[in-house]
Structures are given as C-alpha cells and as structure tokens.
Write a protein that binds this DNA or RNA. Structure first.
Lengths: 123, 123
DNA sequence: GCCCCCTATCGACAACCATCAATGTATAGG
DNA sequence: CCTATACATTGATGGTTGTCGATAGGGGGC
C-alpha cells in the first residue's frame, strides 16, 4: 500500500468512550445505565445511508475509501454524508485518517464484533 | 412447560414481511432499497427500553415472560411498554402468545441471528 | 350480565433526527 | 498571499419517536 506521496497523516478524534463492551443480552438482564450506550451504538446502524456507507467501506479493497468517493454512491449531499460519517465515528464504527487533503475512512471491525456479541444467544 | 390449564391460545399478528434476510454488509455494497428494511430492523434495537425488554426475555427461564411482568422491571408506564413490544413485534424480534387473559412474549432467535449475520466480517 | 384485570390504541406534547444550503476551516499549489 | 479543493459545522425545516394519561376491547370469574 501507499501508492502516493503523503505529506501529513492525522487521525481524527474518536470517541473511544462510546465503544461498547460486550456482555450478551442473554447473559443477564441489562441494567438501565448499560442500555443507553448500547442503544446509541445500534442507533448508528438504524439509518439506511449509514448502513450503505458501512457496506461500501467493508467491501472496498484496501478496506478504506476517500470521503470524496462516498458522496455520489449514496446519493446524498456532501454535508449529509459528512453528518452520517460523524455519527459512525462517534459510535466507534469507523475511523477517518487524513492523508494530504483527503480523509480516508475504514471500518473498525472490533466494534462491529462487539455489537454482534451483544446479540449472541444464550450459552 | 404447561404448568397451568389453558383455555385459549392465540398468536398475535406478526409482520413476517419485515423479517430481514441476511446478505452481510461485507459481501457487496448494500443497495438503497435493501438498506431501508435493514435500518428499520436495527432501529428496533436502538432504544434502551427495548434492549432491556429483549434482555429480560432472553434471560427468562422458559424463554418467555408475561407482558404484565415486563412493566415494572423497565420502569415505564404500561402503554409505553406495550408500544415498545409492538415495535419489537413489528421488527420480528419477539412474538406474543395469548394464554387466557395474559400475553406471553418470547424472542425470535432466528431474527437476532439474521441481524448478527448482517454484521459479519468479510469471508 | 356485571365487574375486574390485562393489553392495546388514541391523542398530545416534547425531544430528537435527516436533510440541504450556506458558511467555515484546513490543506495543497502557485 | 491568493486561489482552489476537501471536509466539517451551522442553521433552518419537516418528519419521526418516546412518553404518558385516558380510553377501548378482550377474557375470566362470579
């Protein structure tokens, strides 16, 4: 990888506090305070545009796509796409890395795995 | 099961059309029209009360709980709990069965598995 | 038939959310 | 410094959603 010269690389701030850790719903009754961040995480998946963005990133070869190449495929305005990318970032589902004047997005597979684990059936 | 005499049994209507089938996001870019029902399904998981209801059902022994026993644990009014149970029913995540004057709810594990599959990483 | 319990539905209200146009901020190139 | 490009943020707006009180409807017991 690295097909072009890169002058600066910055990782955008990521709300790692929002990252969900994983007791399955089936292990014990979910306490009210644990339910809130979990619901926020699933809320990030509750929009068609965000699901499509995730899918685009997951199927991208190299595992990342420039933000500029995400606008046209989902058929929304640039600010709207930026808004959804922020939602995904805040949920810890994607990460953005600046390279030159572009920002490349990639999924955070651990976070997806955590959500999957929450839905796992009983032992 | 079957600790008491049952005079009538009715299965509440279930929107099986809303049931999600399972191509993982990682298999191909998600088309716009497929994204909508999927987003609705995840939307059912995007509320703390609904997550707690699901968790209560999943941890219940016998796998089901009377609706009357779901109100107090989640700390919401009866109409609100009923509203959330309808949302979970519409998403195909739970099913309600009338027995006498009570309605017993249980999770639909296949539907949870389908949502888990959607989040699965690339082969 | 009457009454009580259980559950769903209705109506209302406040809070939240997706969307876009306009604007702001940062980086790259001259 | 100036301009162009890429992305984020702001502000406004219409639609959706969570919540509760009040009400309706279905069952069982008497």
């Amino acid at each position: 990888m690295g097909s072009g010269r890169v002058t600066s690389v910055t990782t955008l701030p990521l709300l790692s506090d929002a990252v969900v850790c994983c007791p399955p719903l089936s292990s014990a009754p979910l306490p009210a305070d644990a339910a809130v961040p979990l619901a926020q995480a699933f809320s990030a998946l509750s929009d068609p545009v965000r699901l499509r963005l995730l899918s685009l990133l997951m199927t991208a070869d190299g595992g990342e796509i420039c933000a500029c190449d995400l606008v046209e495929p989902v058929g929304r305005s640039q600010p709207t796409v930026s808004h959804h990318l922020k939602a995904l970032r805040d949920a810890g589902l994607v990460i953005g890395t600046r390279r030159g004047s572009n920002i490349w997005y990639a999924v955070v597979p651990e976070q997806l795995a955590a959500l999957r684990a929450v839905l796992a059936p009983a032992g």
